[in-house]
């Protein structure tokens, strides 16, 4: 019989994973609605640079990732305003420029020994008490900001013009949303790794789309699918000794396939 205490690695993994699921799913819905999947991808690529800077400066890796993510988002917004290149081109430049820079910085540190594999594909089974505290705090901040942002962000997603007429401060909302995506990437990294972060954002939301009639229903559905993916991925990982992060994404994809293929109302 397993002890349900924070001293057990599986309890920490499960709690961390579920907190990440609840945080990532609503942000993921907005990413799906606003067609920003590649934006999420870009912030997760930039995360490696954040990690590198975190080690270099001796700060929490999560803070480094968050800072670089917000900076990348800010650079994107500034470049979009100049209207010279399309957004997907800009995202490609920022994503790969920052990924390459991150690798260069990491490789220049001869004394630095980090488990790159763990950051690329996640290592949720090694979540410690301090990690769990960071994830819990981050989730609380994220959900709080989202609650405050919910109506204006939803309105802006439906129509920028209507939102502007109704007095929504679009710049503020856009910046806060960028912050939320960066925060989610920084938190989710532990569960599924830099390369798979976007999947945790968009796949549960996509799975919930067909079963929903309102935006709120889709968010609840996405949270449920994300939580099921975490549980399923952890379970499969333990049972068959598989990598937990990729297993989570495989379960999410399978859930999506089921809702997508089963005929039913839209």
């Amino acid at each position: 019989m397993m002890e349900w205490s924070l001293d057990h690695f599986l309890v920490r993994a499960l709690m961390g994973g579920l907190l990440i699921a609840v945080t990532a799913a609503p942000i993921g819905c907005f990413i799906v609605w606003r067609r920003m999947a590649y934006f999420g991808e870009t912030l997760s690529h930039s995360a490696l640079l954040g990690l590198a800077l975190g080690f270099l400066l001796g700060i929490q890796p999560v803070l480094g990732v968050l800072a670089v993510g917000v900076a990348a988002g800010g650079v994107l917004i500034a470049m979009q305003r100049r209207r010279q290149l399309a957004t997907d081109t800009l995202l490609g430049i920022i994503a790969h420029g920052s990924l390459a820079l991150g690798l260069v910085v990491l490789s220049s540190q001869e004394t630095l020994r980090i488990d790159l594999f763990a950051y690329l594909f996640g290592d949720i089974l090694t979540v410690g008490k301090q990690d769990l505290a960071v994830i819990a705090l981050g989730s609380l901040v994220s959900l709080g900001v989202l609650l405050f942002l919910w109506r204006p962000l939803l309105l802006m997603t439906i129509s920028e013009e209507l939102a502007a007429v109704e007095g929504v401060n679009r710049t503020l909302v856009t910046l806060l949303f960028t912050f939320l995506v960066a925060l989610t990437v920084a938190l989710s990294m532990k569960a599924v790794g830099i390369l798979l972060v976007t999947s945790l954002l968009i796949i549960p939301s996509a799975a919930a789309r067909k079963l929903s009639r309102t935006p709120e229903m889709m968010v609840v559905g996405a949270v449920i699918f994300a939580a099921l993916s975490i549980c399923g991925g952890l379970g499969a990982g333990l049972l068959w000794d598989l990598a937990a992060g990729p297993s989570i994404v495989v379960v999410a994809t399978a859930l999506f396939a089921v809702t997508y293929l089963v005929p039913g109302r839209v």
């Binding site: 609605w33 067609r35 997603t157 129509s159 789309r209 929903s212 009639r213 309102t214 229903m217």
Partner: peptide
């Protein structure tokens, strides 16, 4: 309204 968002 983008069809990705369910909205009654």
């Amino acid at each position: 309204v983008d069809y990705t968002m369910p909205l009654s």
